[in-house]
Design a protein around this nucleic acid. Structure first.
Lengths: 220, 220
DNA sequence: CTATAATGTGACCAGTCGGTCATATGACCG
DNA sequence: CGGTCATATGACCGACTGGTCACATTATAG
């Protein structure tokens, strides 16, 4: 939590600091973010910074507060269309609203998203080719399946690739992060519980994808 | 690419360097990884390091090479069960094989996964509570839907939450990363193309989730 | 055994980091 | 005006960073 001193600051100065922090985290992520640069960019002195915040994590947490504020402001007069949406309609509305919120605060959301969710595949370092290699393999697999009549030709190949890639990565991360907590990772991975969970996951994906695009359009 | 000098090294020494690098990237990610620590942990001198590699990225790229080698070794005598799997069966087999590979090389995969895909939600910094807040909201939403009879009670709530969370994050990242490339992010987000893509995505998710667990079991 | 080439080494460099603190500045009050 | 207190400042600190290079060690060849 930033000190009261910071919150008392004239808005202009306060925003300069917040914006500098947003840019810094968005450009460098958490570890590589530099307090020196934030200080230089916002035009305050280093001493002042340490009077406002205790450390780097403190500034970042303040960004989360800023988001919370912005969100209540944003959703103040924005409500779900109609009262009796079902769960998925509501979820869909939430996602769409989130997209609008991201659009309205792109740099801010980019900064916290980069720190909390990672740099993201679509941005990227020098590893784009590495990623393309695996997505291209999936794309070819799907196109082959379409050619052989196994998958409906109206399926959106790019979308299917994105979905498969997302799950491939999510499952890999899940196995690694959750697995490292276990004392016997191999036993855990091969356990009925874990296998069943992944099976269900893939089944949900598969079932959704098997629907043809024409059905999508008629049902949405 | 590491210099030939490095590849000529006695295996023991070479592995010491690779293992030190793996540990470093797994523990600190790319930005915060320290060449000094890698050097110290592997027992080589700093000068030698710079004779083997040009910089940090070069070591990391070598880890990708190591993975490629390990993978060909791993899949040498591991083939899909039967020749006429359909696309999804094949994908499922690939995912499962990937899980086994991760299990066999957990630290190595953790290192590159952390760098390429981010720290992952399930690991985490001091932001676990931030994440729990949103997942709990989704969980309650689903439980409410089950209570009211809208969603089949046999649905695995935790699984559904994981799926919804994954898509929520993936969509958010997609919008931010892809959107920042556009000259007019708002126009892009609201365009029919983008909206349709997200709609389809959510529809695939929804359709998979609407199936009841009993159907899962009978069909898998 | 000597000469030459390849490899290994760690002290050293300039630069940056997060963080501190004595001092300066300004705001408020009697 | 003087006095008191909150705030602002940037020089300075030790630690660490990625990177270099003159020199030591070892291997190879004649």
């Amino acid at each position: 939590m930033p000190k009261q001193t910071f919150l008392n600051l004239p808005e202009e100065k306060r925003l300069a600091v917040v914006n500098a922090a947003v840019d810094e985290f968005a450009d460098y992520g958490f570890e590589a973010a530099s307090i020196n640069r934030i200080v230089a960019a916002s035009g305050i002195s280093k001493g002042s910074f340490y009077q406002y915040f205790t450390d780097k994590l403190d500034v970042f947490n303040h960004l989360l507060d800023v988001i919370a504020q912005e969100k209540t402001e944003f959703f103040k007069d924005r409500h779900p269309p109609g009262a009796n949406l079902d769960t998925f309609q509501y979820f869909r509305w939430m996602i769409k609203a989130g997209m609008e919120f991201n659009t309205a605060n792109p740099r801010l959301m980019q900064a916290v998203s980069r720190v909390l969710l990672g740099e993201g595949l679509y941005y990227g370092r020098n590893f784009e080719d590495q990623r393309l290699k695996s997505t291209n393999a999936m794309r070819m697999m799907l196109q082959q399946a379409i050619k052989s009549g196994e998958v409906d030709p109206s399926v959106d190949v790019d979308l299917a690739v994105m979905i498969m890639e997302t799950w491939s990565n999510a499952i890999s991360s899940y196995i690694l992060n959750e697995g490292m907590k276990q004392k016997d990772i191999m036993k855990w991975v091969r356990s009925a519980r874990t296998q069943e969970k992944i099976d269900k996951l893939l089944y949900v994906m598969e079932y959704g994808l098997r629907k043809t695009e024409s059905e999508f359009i008629s049902q949405t």
